[in-house]
Amino acid sequence: MATKINEVYVVRKSDVILSVKIGNAQIGSSLVKLDNKEISRGEIKDLIIGNGSDIIGKTLSIKTVITDVSDKTNVLTVQYTLKGGETDKNYDLKDEVSEEGDSVIFRANFEFQG
């Protein structure tokens, strides 16, 4: 189970769109930065990062904290979805807490390439 990924995302000339999905009925919040500049936070759904040609060479960093609010499972999952590039892609991260109510920080870095 990983809590961090570093990936390359190949862009085209269309807009690149990010969504962050917190699974397993848990609650989480995300902080999204493009080249270290905050562009959004909280619940992220269909967030336009920018036109593919404008963001080539830039790095998208997402930090997500998820808290275990379910007594049914201790598994925390987050799915980062990038659309608008060469292909739409999902990136899944998962971890399990040992105690009810614990939190985990997940990190994802995407480098945009043409």
């Binding site: 917190i22 699974g23 397993n24 009925a25 999952t77 799915q79």
Partner: peptide
């Protein structure tokens, strides 16, 4: 099982 698509 884990349910990635099951939001709160």
């Amino acid at each position: 099982f884990s349910h990635v698509n099951l939001t709160f």
